[in-house]
Simulated assay, not measured.
Amino acid sequence: MISLWRGGVLLLLVLGAGGGAHAAEEPASAVVEENPHDWLQRMVMASQQLNYDGIFVYQYDHRLDAMQVIHAAERKGERERLFSLTGPRREILRNNDQVVCILGDQEVVHVNRSRPRSGFPAPFPGDTARLEKYYRFELGPAARVAGLDCRKVVVRPRDAYRYGRKVCIHVDTGLMLSSELTGVDGRPIERMMFTSVRFPDRIGEERLLPALSDAGFSWKREPDMPEGGQGRSREDSRWKVVRVPAGFELMDHRWHRLSAHEPGVEHWVYSDGLASVSVYIEKAGQEEDSYQGATHRGALNAWGTTVAGHYVTVVGEVPMQTVELIGKSVQARLQ
């Protein structure tokens, strides 16, 4: 079985899963839309316009974790603090595109740059109508979450290569109050739900500072420009991904390292506009002769193999058959 921690894969996914909201503008107005795309667009806009401070629960694999998120928007951009209330003491701090992850149980601090995202906790594009070829969008009934009125929107996949989603959007502000990731059969794989949330006019500076002391912790910083990364394109790579499900397109391709002292990893990101899959390729260690298998954590699936002396790991919040399909198609180019 592949460890999700290999090469910092799980850390990268945790850092890529965060998001935020913005308070420099007025919150989205409480207009009653009857089109699911309008509701989702309000949700995306609200995630860029609101201050909020809330506690939510996250359920997956028969586990239930509690976390708190504090988000503030300033003229210079967004800041956010996300920290665990159960289990290991961990915090994630975001200042625009810089992300600091403090792992109290491991006494490690990771610093890296995040890709743009469209909102905590589940990313949606601003224009969901263009996804109709691969998903069906339905407006569900009214509901209540954390004592607040919300409206459900259901997103159903049209094939078995992607998950569905159910979200409940706050009527007054547009903030997403709950979400479910569902399989093709409609059954929930993981759930997130606010148990309390407030929308203060201002978030104090002290609320955005970490409670964990990093004294004595080891620091791992992602270099701004990995060695050999500048000027290299997909055509420079010795690798090619031959097959991806319909609708998935290459969104990002780069070489990077989690620290200046670690070997480089080639990273490919494919997305259909809602779901995304990462392909990591790194040189295999001499001590490991084989590297193949599958594992999962909630909706997160990972599949790995060894190709031409390199580890290939495919990870994403998509069904296992999707990461396996992509992983088996990775080939070394003929030199």
Rank of each mutant, 00 (worst) to 15 (best):
R42H: 08
I55D: 10
D65F: 06
R113D: 09
R117M: 12
V265E: 04
Q49R: 13
I326N: 01
G186N: 08
E26S: 09
R144W: 10
G126E: 09
L325V: 06
V330T: 04
F248W: 05
V265Y: 00
D236V: 07
T86Q: 09
D127N: 09
G18V: 11
R158N: 10
F56D: 01
E235K: 11
Q335H: 13
H253C: 06
F56M: 02
V153W: 08
G126K: 09
P27L: 00
F56A: 00
A46D: 00
P188W: 12
V277T: 02
Y60G: 02
M320F: 11
D201F: 14
V318C: 03
Q41C: 11
S178P: 03
E317D: 08
G216C: 00
G119R: 03
R234V: 14
A46G: 00
A299G: 08
R115H: 14
A160E: 14
R79W: 04
E132G: 12
H170S: 08
R115L: 15
H110K: 12
G247K: 01
Q331W: 06
M320N: 10
L250C: 02
D224C: 13
R158C: 11
R81Y: 03
V312Q: 01
H22S: 12
A294T: 10
Q335A: 14
T305W: 05
S271Y: 02
D127C: 05
T195D: 06
V155Y: 06
A294N: 10
L40H: 08
F217E: 01
R257E: 04
M176R: 01
G216H: 05
T86M: 11
E205F: 02
H310Q: 03
G7F: 07
E288P: 04
K240W: 15
E249Y: 12
P245L: 07
C168F: 07
S213K: 07
G285R: 12
I92P: 00
R257N: 06
A294I: 04
R156N: 06
G174T: 01
A66I: 10
I203S: 03
V265L: 05
R234F: 07
R238G: 07
M43V: 13
V155L: 04
K240P: 13
A129V: 09
R187C: 10
Q230P: 08
E287N: 14
M192E: 07
V57W: 09
F248I: 06
G309N: 01
F56I: 03
G7D: 01
M320K: 15
S114H: 02
R75T: 13
E25I: 10
E180A: 05
M67Q: 09
R90H: 11
K133D: 13
P141S: 15
V242M: 14
V330E: 02
P116Q: 05
V312L: 05
G247C: 08
V279E: 03
G16L: 07
E227R: 12
E132P: 11
L82D: 03
R297Y: 13
